[in-house]
Design a protein around this nucleic acid. Structure first.
Length: 276
DNA sequence: ACTGGATCCTGACTGC
DNA sequence: TGCAGTCAGGATCCAG
């Protein structure tokens, strides 16, 4: 389900309900996710307060502790099909509701994930040094993400530019939908070799990534099948998609038929007229 | 050092 | 209606 805009939407939706609240209970119904849920998670969290909550790439980082004393950080990644919701504490769990954090004011945060690719891990170290976090590239909506950064990363790689955009060591948060959409806006063919793109064109691509992500966030993300914002509403960016999922339909820009190809095991959509 | 492919898991959809 | 096959918004691991 979630790329950066969906994770950001989730973050904004859940924060006001749980920030500065104390955990009264933890329920783990299914510990077998992408990796086993950290042993003893319940003991780490109970009676601790959520001191801070932020996003790094597609990870959510929940910092827990007492007063200003940090005890550690919960790393949470939603994988392909994960979602978080805030519910009354007595809400009966449905299928695939694997983890609940119950908070002191009778609210719970519930992780649902049919495909179980999500990640729930505890670390008492600095989360920036965690194995899953430390090699992540720059945030696309920060000043560390620049056209020159993309150009330098692309120079020494022969992989398809779309595969490069989706490599989170180069830039985080860009998944299959937004990679396709950004390349369309920049007029670059998804299969084009990363080292055969000029700085001028990387400037276009950089701006396209930033714009697409910002627009998607402002519309609450993209709902294809099951993504819901915290209030149960879908994300509305699906209406703005120009190529993703539009194989066989006419390009909104030139009328040419949108094509679908498989690239690095993922479906890619593009306009053969507008993208070279 | 890069790169492409297989892999984890379940649900929704398509075609016979 | 049932069943097999295909495809999914992610990212790691492994072999070449």
């Amino acid at each position: 389900m979630p790329e950066l805009p969906e994770v950001e939407t989730t973050l904004r939706g859940i924060s006001p309900h749980i920030l500065d609240r104390q955990v009264s209970d933890v329920v783990i119904r299914q510990p077998k996710l992408r990796w086993p849920v950290t042993d003893g998670l319940s003991e780490q969290l109970k009676q601790n307060r959520l001191l801070a909550l932020r996003r790094r790439g597609k990870y959510l980082l929940f910092t827990f502790g007492q007063a200003n004393q940090t005890s550690g950080t919960l790393l949470l990644h939603l994988g392909m099909s994960g979602s978080l919701r805030i519910l009354p504490a007595d809400t009966a769990p449905g299928p695939h509701d694997h983890v609940d954090l119950v908070f002191e004011h009778d609210r719970l945060m519930r992780l649902r994930d049919p495909r179980r690719f999500s990640v729930v891990l505890w670390t008492s170290q600095d989360p920036e040094q965690h194995k899953l976090i430390q090699h992540l590239g720059p945030e696309p909506l920060s000043s560390a993400f620049t056209p020159e950064h993309l150009y330098q990363a692309g120079r020494r790689r022969r992989i398809a530019v779309k595969a490069m955009l989706m490599n989170h060591q180069i830039v985080v948060g860009v998944g299959n939908i937004y990679a396709s959409e950004s390349l369309f806006r920049a007029g670059i063919h998804p299969k084009r070799s990363a080292n055969r793109i000029s700085l001028v064109r990387y400037r276009l691509l950089h701006q396209a990534v930033v714009d697409v992500l910002n627009e998607a966030i402002s519309q609450g993300g993209t709902t294809l099948r099951d993504f819901q914002q915290n209030d149960g509403k879908p994300g509305y960016f699906a209406q703005s998609l120009q190529v993703y999922g539009r194989a066989g339909q006419a390009c909104n820009q030139c009328g040419e038929e949108i094509k679908q190809i498989v690239l690095a095991q993922r479906s890619s959509y593009y306009c053969p007229q507008c993208q070279r």
